[in-house]
């Protein structure tokens, strides 16, 4: 038999794709290994990021050379990342369902096409432009007018009262993330609504249900797995978002949000903003600790994506 040149080169090229994922995990683990050993597990739940005295002489601690008083703990980053993404997902879900229903059920196909193109375009606006919009439009608007009013009116609700802050903070970051992930959820949902067996919808209509009631009582329960899967997928996207969060979150260091207006920082934004100062550390431990954050973020993102894909796989959505 002739050696299948085409087939084997195809396989060789294609295998670069999983290999790059493998290289990603391997490189990050190897590079951050000293930091992982030095920080151990309390890295994850202590609330204490301090590069130490960068003008002092490096000291030996537990067999590692670090700057004096250097401590690395990222609990505030984990809280900020999870809180902002979770709020964004909760806000995005009803918006996305609404937009999907309007485009799939609320109008004729010929009119829905251009409008759905426009929702898709929303997904393609670069994240740094979202960040710029948040910085230039949302932060002044929310910080000066909306948040003070909200904090005043909702002062009896936990986490909604208290100091309204400057506009940079948890809720602003969540709002920008919301607008970014709505198109993702909405596009998949719209496809799934269109793919739903028409016989089911017609059966509902013939029983006298309105279009909306058919959607609510027949279509949506059938799409429950899709909704859950695609929401988790969007959550994964929000967890890893860097530039938009970096520009509107207020970049808090070492404190936890006490209400929804408090400045926060997310893991991705922290990595992007801290490398310059980490490079000042002559022992290199700070850069390795940042690499450990990247590894943690990668593992969280991969876990979330795997769960979402498995759920969507079960629902047979590709």
């Amino acid at each position: 038999m002739k050696f299948p040149i085409f087939r084997s080169s195809l396989v060789a090229m294609a295998s670069l794709l999983p290999l790059s994922l493998l290289a990603l995990i391997t490189f990050l683990t190897i590079y951050s290994w000293p930091a992982i050993q030095y920080n151990q597990f309390h890295f994850l739940w202590t609330n204490d990021w301090d590069l130490g005295n960068l003008y002092g002489d490096p000291v030996m601690e537990h067999g590692f050379q670090v700057m004096p008083h250097a401590r690395y703990g990222i609990w505030f980053l984990i809280v900020g990342t999870v809180a902002s993404s979770f709020i964004a997902m909760v806000l995005a879900l009803p918006l996305a369902i609404g937009a999907a229903v309007l485009l799939a059920e609320g109008m004729r196909k010929s009119r829905a096409a251009p409008l759905s193109l426009f929702v898709d375009l929303l997904a393609s606006i670069p994240s740094v432009v979202y960040g710029l919009w948040g910085y230039a439009v949302l932060v002044p608007l929310l910080g000066q007018h909306v948040y003070p009013a909200m904090a005043h009116a909702l002062s009896f609700v936990p986490f909604f009262g208290g100091a309204p802050g400057s506009g940079y903070g948890l809720l602003t970051a969540s709002l920008v993330l919301t607008i970014m992930i709505v198109p993702l959820i909405s596009a998949t949902l719209r496809e799934s609504i269109n793919m739903t067996d028409p016989a089911l919808k017609e059966a509902g209509r013939s029983l006298g249900l309105s279009r909306l009631e058919v959607f609510w009582h027949v279509v949506l329960p059938k799409l429950r797995t899709v909704v859950i899967g695609v929401s988790i997928l969007a959550l994964g996207r929000a967890l890893g978002e860097t530039m938009a969060v970096l520009m509107v979150s207020g970049n808090a260091l070492n404190y936890l949000p006490n209400n929804i207006y408090t400045p926060i920082s997310s893991m991705a934004a922290f990595i992007a903003s801290q490398l310059d100062s980490a490079l000042q550390d002559p022992t290199n431990m700070a850069v390795q600790a940042l690499s450990e954050i990247a590894l943690v973020l990668l593992l969280i993102a991969v876990a979330v994506n795997v769960i979402a894909r498995l759920i969507l796989w079960m629902a047979r959505v590709r």
Partner: peptide, 29 residues
């Protein structure tokens, strides 16, 4: 199926993590 699944996972890798990987692997190493 495995390749499809891994490529879906690669879509979900945060871009800043890719950037840091590039920094470690290419810029430094």
């Amino acid at each position: 199926s495995a390749l499809r699944f891994l490529s879906d996972v690669l879509v979900g890798v945060p871009s800043i993590v890719l950037g840091y990987f590039g920094y470690i692997a290419m810029v430094i190493y």
